[in-house]
């Protein structure tokens, strides 16, 4: 009798077959979505236990079994003390390469409530990855509850913009010059317009945020990384090439992401396939930017012939 497979994303052999072995994937960074944020809204002890269990399970069931895998430290974001404790507990394991949050939070991410989490991440040299989804307790859009998943999905991009804005104006990026934020599944192309708008707002209203030492766009270029899936798809793919030329930092900041095992998965050989791009820039996007950010070792010379 053939071995029964579990659902995609919960079965390592199935992951190897569908993703890791099917394409030449050197490393895959896991992003467990455990809804600790939702639980933590009401029961911090449960959220903390869920996160601890998830991180331990990830290490034992996944990271121990395949050397290509890395993962993200899930933390109960709405209970800062527990979240910091979990970062401290798990960070010594170098296979965990970032601290993990979901984009929907109870307060905008720049709020001081969350600063100890960023301090812990920066202390350990870990980026903070922020993924699509989560439950913050607020309507799904700034204009109230949306009726359709379409709005919820496309609207997550607006929450990413809000969180970036909050982080920039909060002052945390001056306080932690080595803090790196990875915005995952939030899109990329909006960053140019948002940086313009923030710079303009800063010109007018800098008195309100005297703690900022530079223009908002400078913080964006230095502290934020982005992932491809679901990258915006203009009718003319060259629009994206122009954007990458107009915002040169993006060449060093955009990383391939698959969103496996979700319905809107992007295959490595399909993503931005029609977008004109130099081989160097494509290599950066597909591997080198992530290698640098997550400090992933280059392949050993002995592996080159395999």
């Amino acid at each position: 009798m053939a071995a029964r497979r579990r659902a995609p994303g919960s079965d390592l052999d199935f992951l190897r077959e569908q993703l890791l072995d099917r394409w030449p994937i050197e490393y895959a960074v896991l992003g467990p979505i455990v809804r600790a944020d939702q639980a933590g809204m009401r029961n911090a002890d449960y959220a903390a236990a869920l996160c601890r269990a998830t991180n331990d399970w990830t290490a034992r069931e996944w990271l121990d079994s395949d050397p290509r895998l890395r993962s993200s430290i899930v933390v109960p974001v709405e209970d800062t003390a527990y979240a910091v404790a979990e970062v401290e507990r798990v960070a010594p394991d170098p296979r965990f390469v970032q601290v993990y949050m979901q984009i929907k939070t109870a307060l905008p991410m720049g709020n001081r409530k969350y600063w100890p989490i960023y301090e812990a991440a920066a202390h350990h040299g870990l980026p903070v990855g922020v993924h699509f989804g989560g439950v913050g307790g607020h309507p799904s859009t700034a204009a109230g509850w949306a009726s359709f998943y379409l709005e919820d999905h496309a609207g997550n991009a607006q929450s990413f913009q809000t969180q970036l804005t909050s982080l920039v104006f909060s002052g945390i990026l001056d306080r932690l010059p080595n803090l790196r934020i990875v915005l995952i599944e939030g899109g990329v192309a909006w960053v140019q317009s948002l940086a313009w708008r923030m710079d303009r707002a800063f010109e007018r209203m800098h008195d309100e945020v005297p703690h900022l030492t530079r223009r908002p766009s400078e913080y964006v270029a230095e502290h934020f990384w982005f992932t491809t899936q679901p990258v915006e798809e203009p009718p003319d793919p060259r629009s994206l090439s122009r954007l990458f030329a107009d915002v040169p930092a993006l060449r060093d900041r955009v990383m391939y992401s698959s969103d496996y095992p979700h319905w809107d998965f992007d295959a490595p050989d399909q993503v931005m396939r029609t977008v004109p791009m130099s081989a160097t820039d494509r290599a950066k996007m597909m591997s080198e930017n992530a290698r640098a950010l997550y400090r992933l070792p280059a392949p050993a010379p002995a592996d080159a012939g395999e």
Partner: peptide, 11 residues
């Protein structure tokens, strides 16, 4: 915002 009350008017 969809993620709660911001701190500053500029946000």
């Amino acid at each position: 915002t969809a993620v709660g009350w911001p701190t500053y008017l500029v946000e």
